[in-house]
């Protein structure tokens, strides 16, 4: 069995996320990192292998700017055997369906039985990519999986909806997105980081990837940003820097002052 993990490069949590006023797209000039939710997808692939399943290879797949190579280096350090980056100026500004089309096109060429994605992208806060990729691939999908077992030629997945937990079974090949509680991602060892540099990282153009150019980029995007505005102003809260628990009396005082105790 082979596993493909779809990953994304996002602005890092500590750098300020903003939209570029000229393009209304995410400003990618700051620091970027591997989408934290994707760490769980990579970890799950590695744990499936370590759990004794016959995993041939784990390939990390990404669509993004050239800088996304760094995110893929991290994916390699975390256990992917090789990585594929689709990077092409014509892809910038792709919408969700366009991005899913690109990921599906690349995944389709990887001979992957199981495709794993993170629960959502940290920058867009959308949780729709797995189901969109699955539709392009015409494969079964289970999203938000909190517990995953690979059994023979199929998967058994537990996931939470508004009604509690459902168990869903699907034959391979299949697509899943995993909850950020499915596992605890490991930190890459120095050896793994060094080893990652020797693993194959292939960069494809949109044409190499077999992308339908009408569906991608700014011109192929079917959703268009019309305007960007500040949200309704809200009163700023009180911030207290704690040291060793010394904030407790002050918090109690504030709560008492509000008549909450």
């Amino acid at each position: 069995m082979n596993i493909a993990v779809c990953v994304k490069e996002v602005p890092s949590g500590t750098s300020h996320k903003r939209l570029d006023p000229a393009t209304n797209r995410l400003d990618r000039s700051g620091d970027s990192e591997l989408n934290p939710f994707d760490l769980h997808a990579l970890e799950e692939a590695v744990q499936i292998r370590e759990g004794g399943a016959d995993v041939g290879e784990i390939v990390a797949v990404c669509m993004g700017p050239a800088s996304a190579q760094r995110a893929l280096q991290k994916a390699l350090a975390l256990g992917a055997d090789r990585a594929v980056l689709v990077s092409d100026d014509s892809l910038a500004g792709s919408d969700i369906a366009g991005t899913a089309h690109v990921l599906a096109a690349v995944v389709a060429k990887q001979d992957a039985d199981l495709v794993i994605l993170g629960q959502q992208a940290a920058d867009a806060d959308c949780y729709v990519m797995a189901a969109a990729v699955a539709d392009y691939l015409e494969r079964p999908v289970v999203t938000q999986v909190a517990d995953l077992t690979v059994e023979g030629s199929g998967i058994r997945a537990k996931r939470q909806t508004e009604h509690g937990y459902d168990v869903i079974e699907a034959p391979l090949p299949a697509v899943v997105s995993v909850s950020d509680a499915i596992n605890t991602p490991r930190l890459p060892s120095i050896k793994a980081i060094m080893g990652a540099k020797k693993k194959p990282l292939e960069t494809l153009s949109a044409a190499d990837a077999g992308v339908d150019s009408g569906r991608v980029g700014e011109s192929g995007a079917q959703s268009i940003v019309r305007s960007v505005a500040p949200p309704a102003a809200k009163s700023a809260g009180v911030t207290i820097e704690d040291s060793g628990g010394d904030s407790a009396p002050q918090v109690v005082e504030i709560l008492a002052g509000k008549g909450l105790l």
Partner: peptide, 10 residues
Amino acid sequence: DTVMVESGFR
């Protein structure tokens, strides 16, 4: 939730 983005569609 720091900006409000309005989108339309083709």
